[in-house]
Simulated scan of single mutants.
Amino acid sequence: MILEAAILQVKTGTETEFEETFRRASAIISSMKGYIFHELQRCMEAEGKYLLLVQWETLEDHTVGFRQSPQYQEWKELLHHFYDPFPTVEHFEKVTL
Rank of each mutant, 00 (worst) to 15 (best):
M1Q: 07
M1V: 09
L3G: 01
A6Y: 07
A6I: 05
A6L: 05
A6C: 02
I7E: 02
I7C: 04
I7V: 12
L8A: 05
L8T: 11
Q9W: 03
Q9C: 03
V10P: 00
V10E: 00
K11T: 00
K11Y: 00
T14F: 01
T14Y: 00
E15Y: 04
E15R: 08
E17T: 07
E17Q: 07
F18M: 02
F18H: 02
F18P: 01
F18S: 02
E19Y: 02
E19L: 11
E19I: 04
E20H: 02
F22N: 11
F22M: 12
R24Q: 10
R24S: 08
R24P: 01
A25Y: 05
A25P: 03
S26D: 00
S26F: 07
A27C: 02
A27R: 06
S30P: 02
S30Y: 01
S30C: 03
S30W: 01
S30L: 02
S31I: 06
S31C: 05
M32K: 01
K33C: 07
G34C: 08
G34D: 11
G34I: 04
Y35H: 13
Y35W: 10
F37M: 12
F37Q: 06
H38L: 09
H38M: 04
L40S: 11
L40K: 13
L40D: 03
L40F: 07
Q41C: 12
R42K: 13
C43V: 00
C43H: 04
M44A: 13
M44Q: 09
M44S: 08
E45Y: 13
E45P: 03
E45Q: 10
E45G: 10
E47N: 06
E47G: 01
K49R: 04
K49G: 00
K49V: 02
Y50V: 14
Y50F: 13
Y50S: 09
Y50R: 14
L51R: 09
L51D: 08
L52M: 08
L53C: 07
L53P: 08
L53I: 05
V54G: 10
V54A: 12
V54P: 06
Q55F: 03
W56M: 15
W56C: 12
E57W: 09
E57Q: 15
T58Q: 11
T58C: 14
L59E: 09
E60F: 08
E60R: 15
E60Q: 15
H62D: 14
T63E: 10
T63L: 11
G65Q: 04
R67S: 08
R67T: 14
R67H: 12
R67Q: 14
Q68F: 14
Q68G: 09
Q68M: 06
S69P: 08
S69L: 06
S69F: 01
P70K: 01
P70V: 00
Q71I: 00
Y72F: 13
Q73R: 07
W75V: 07
W75S: 06
K76E: 14
K76Y: 06
E77T: 15
L78K: 13
L78G: 11
L78S: 09
L78H: 03
L79S: 15
L79T: 11
L79D: 12
H81F: 12
H81L: 06
F82C: 06
F82Q: 05
F82H: 03
F82L: 02
Y83M: 00
F86C: 04
F86S: 08
P87R: 10
T88H: 07
V89F: 04
V89A: 13
V89N: 11
V89S: 09
E90T: 12
H91Q: 12
F92V: 15
F92Y: 14
E93W: 04
K94C: 12
L97K: 15
